[in-house]
Design a binder for these strands. Structure first.
Lengths: 336, 336
DNA sequence: CTGTTAGCGCCTTCAG
DNA sequence: CTGAAGGCGCTAACAG
């Protein structure tokens, strides 16, 4: 490995002078700078970031922990994050937690070991508070995305869940639906909880009775949708929902698959809406009516906030950026 | 920041002993180990990887450069890569080159600066040879994925392009098509070139004349599909292709959009097939007939090969893993 | 089994 | 404007 000393020797200067050239110190004679730059080029010298980090205390490394890149929402988010990071001279290490607290914990520890400059995290749930503590203890700035954590005050970029639920429910009501079932995630995941509370609140405001039997919570990873759909369909005919509001794209896909097993047609027999497009590319037969969140912005703005936090004075901030969604009406919903 | 010395002091041992505990050295008395571990826990000490890397010469960091995570093919590939890396104790820094040689170059340089242990790269094209040299000069192992580079001998995981083209063309021929147009990428991108050559070879073997006017090369990033479709449609009726073979999912999506602008129906007026699903999640109205490559495996096996190269003896190897695809017949193709 | 010394590659600090 | 000394946090190599 070639070091700063090799360059120094070749250019007949001290290592310190080379260091100054690398770091664009102004106090360098043009002549020496040229000489050094020539040596750098000839030796193909690239400074060792680990060595620099040891002194500078920064790594220009950011960590992004999401649950699964394979989910189009997170795919776009990751792209937005990388774009902003790159634009600001940072690079991003990415990890998939798979909604698993232990995996998340391990990833956070190794991120700390790397002394990353900051972390963008979609926490697995409220239990992530424990993992977050690791970050705080080591003074690593972080911004939460998509989900917050009960009892944790910090910067976050989240969706405007209430409003989005409002749009989705309004759409169903306009189509004449009053029997609206809900499939959501565990209530220790903030956005799932928020969407559930919004569901209850909005229905009540609309004068629609909320039925416990229409509210189902599934694991986000192992979907349980077969079981949920079975239960819904086993209700007496007049108690069956005419529409299904699903708070997550993956859950929605599975729910529709389960419906198909029972030969229930969407939207003829039941209307379905959900959060987030399951398809990233404009499809040819777009099917699902969704509330699409600006996933790319989640990542972009998240990293932006994070970098501001890293580079700005480190007052412990707790800003929340709430992004709104867009209702896209397609063919999974129909007039009752 | 708390260091190994803080732990040493607290545990009443030398820093070296702490280091030994951290690295699971066998020659440590159980008692001292316990003492040290207690101190580590109490201080919440996490060793600094940069410092360690300075000595050990490894970073446990891998770099993944793809053209765009947002392309479902690369999304799955990235997931496979991360899974295998994680399984083996590595983490991955990911970058999107956007088919841009300069961006690729910059990413490679900063990867080298970090002294990453290895790189998995989907090169932008044959011109990437220049960038690859940076890696070789700095003795950084790399494996190419999806695309190789003219004149560069190295490990690679690629698709079996010939066979895949065979499947696609056979399918079209079986449906009665003989006028098969090709939309592919620039010929300095290896897989695009291979697919084009395969197209020519396979058609000739099938006794079908190859028409230059049916072969079109588009940029991969700015798609030019409107122009290409215009040209194809401006041909005299009897010279118009009855089917379209597109060598890339994004190109195919754009081509179909362009066709729609002209009110040309797929598959009624023209059949379309392509490489790779544009949709990662099983869709409800799957439309495109595709040859799906095992994207996840590309990433998983790629990282596996890379790690073998890193950890094995560093003989300069040049293995090529060729993965085959699966033809999925859907609704974008019809009997002529 | 444990400690001491030296040094990884770079930069801060202080002289000159 | 440039250089020398020392140290960032850790571990290899040796000593004991």
């Amino acid at each position: 490995m070639i070091t700063i000393y090799d360059v120094a020797k070749k250019a007949n200067v001290s290592a310190m002078t080379v260091s100054r050239v690398i770091n664009n110190s102004p106090s360098i004679k043009k002549e020496t700078r040229m000489k050094v730059e020539k040596a750098i080029k000839e030796l193909d010298y690239i400074p060792n970031r680990s060595a620099r980090s040891l002194i500078s205390k920064d790594t220009k490394l950011l960590s992004l922990i999401i649950t699964d890149v394979t989910n189009p929402f997170f795919t776009s988010l990751a792209r937005g994050a990388e774009d902003k990071a790159n634009e600001s001279g940072y690079q991003v290490v990415f990890s998939n937690s798979d909604e698993n607290l232990e995996k998340e914990s391990a990833y956070i520890r190794s991120a700390v070991a790397r002394r990353i400059d900051g972390m963008l995290l979609a926490p697995t749930g409220d239990a992530s508070a424990k993992n977050i503590k690791t970050l705080s203890k080591h003074h690593i700035p972080f911004v939460l995305i998509d989900r917050t954590i009960e009892g944790v005050q910090c910067d976050a970029v989240v969706g405007d869940n209430f409003n989005t639920m409002q749009k989705l429910i309004d759409h169903l009501i306009q189509l004449g639906h009053k029997k609206i079932a809900l499939i959501t995630g565990p209530s220790n995941v903030s956005n799932m909880k928020e969407r559930e509370l919004a569901y209850i609140h909005i229905l009540q405001s609309a004068g629609i009775a909320v039925e416990e039997k229409w509210i189902h919570r599934s694991d986000l990873k192992n979907t349980r949708s077969d079981e949920i759909i079975d239960r819904l369909l086993s209700l007496p005919k007049n108690e069956r929902p005419t529409s299904l509001l699903v708070t997550n794209n993956f859950l929605a896909v599975d729910a529709i698959k389960s419906l198909r097993k029972h030969c229930i047609k969407v939207p003829e027999d039941i209307s379905v809406v959900c959060f987030d497009d399951p398809e990233p590319i404009p499809d040819f037969n777009p099917f699902l009516t969704v509330a699409a969140q600006p996933a790319y912005e989640f990542g972009f703005k998240g990293i932006q906030m994070l970098i501001e936090k890293i580079e700005g004075k480190d007052e412990p901030s707790s800003r929340t950026l709430r992004l709104s969604s867009e209702l896209i009406v397609r063919h999974s919903t129909a007039q009752l």
